[in-house]
Design a protein around this nucleic acid. Sequence first.
DNA 1: TCTGGGGTCCTGTGGCTC
DNA 2: TCTGGAGCCACAGGACCC
Length: 424
Amino acid sequence: MFASGRSILHLDMDAFFASVEQARRPELHGLPVIVGGERGARGVVSACSYEARAYGVHSALPITQAERLCPHGVFLPVDMRAYLAVHRSLVELLGHYTDLVEVASIDEAYLDVTGSRRLFGPPRTIAHRIQEQVYDAHGVTCSIGIGPTKLLAKLAAGLHKPAGIGELIAADVHGRLRDLPVGEVCGIGPVTQERLTALGLTTVGMLQDVPFPLLAAAFGKGAHGLRQLALGRSFSPVRSGRPLPKSVGREITFDDDVNDQEFLRATLLSLTDSAVAELRGKGLAARTVALKVRFNTFHTVGRRRTLPRPVSAVRPIHETAMALLDELDVGARWVRLVGVSVSGLTHNAFQLTMDDGWREVALGEAVDKVREKYGFKSLTLAGGSPARRHQSPAQSFHPDPGGAAQAARELAGASAESSPTEAV
DNA sequence: TCTGGGGTCCTGTGGCTC
DNA sequence: TCTGGAGCCACAGGACCC
């Protein structure tokens, strides 16, 4: 049932974004810090300090509601660069204890320290050392759970937030965990919790005991997974290394709903440009293009199309997104959000063909270099900026003043001369 | 009245081929 | 030639996570 003798730690940063803000700006210590957006803007809370939580603010809460609950709160925009810098440093630190570090998200990681016990002591000792080092290095706290599986380790961390260390053993599944609300279990979200509650199943113990046919009648194939969750079983080991991402995408919620087709097209071009920049940055190409549209009714629809072969240039991806937009026939409906994503990712090496237009790809790579040096907004696609509402989205680049233009021309020229030999 | 962004995973469905 | 089943794949949408 449980992997015999494995010691898995789950490290979970406490109110990560807000803690980083408080650590780098000591004047914010003790204040209700709410990270996610500026006052009055559309958006939700990404993270908030424990001082803000005392007012009922929590992540995913609309900013406008957070304002009402905590009018004197300090509202800050998300500074992902700062959080990523701390994240990378933490991952490096964790790597000192074991090679088996699985980064689950920007503020969570699993460590399999089974083989580290002889060198660093029992898991609890390792957890204490990690907590101290994290605080010394960045002034932020974390909670750490210990368990024989990732699921139990995560539950243990959640039960000991903030800044705690907790441990769950296999026997706890039929002991301490039984009274836990089902919604506390990772994998059971609000929708599933509501369906379980409708069946009278509100605790983990109830979910363990309910006759399986009853569960299967309500959840079909999902019943087995639910039962496994209730029994604390997770069979996936801690996996180190970075797997190939499954998709890359960009989406935007407009400040005001939009029913201007040209504006939508320009926005999609801008989003595609940004997503493709990331794609190329990772050396990837994509085969499937997906479009997402959310109307002002909050009804969300998606369309996707698979291309004959992987591409990594803006044009084919944007053209496909445009075709999907036409297919959706948005008409005069008001659109709240639009997004584009690509999936079916593969490594990009030697996949260019003449159809892709190696010049275009070479230009894109040159643009990437300029943006790396001068910032993403140093070059934008003509028609790709939503601010230019009525320009046609022709694919040419608009440099900002200050030399980036010349640099782009130089780089594009250099790349174009050196690339054709790679075209297949 | 309000409900982000960027992901992953799963399920059901339908088309296609054998 | 027709039909049905199996298997695969693409697609759409939902649920969930941080």
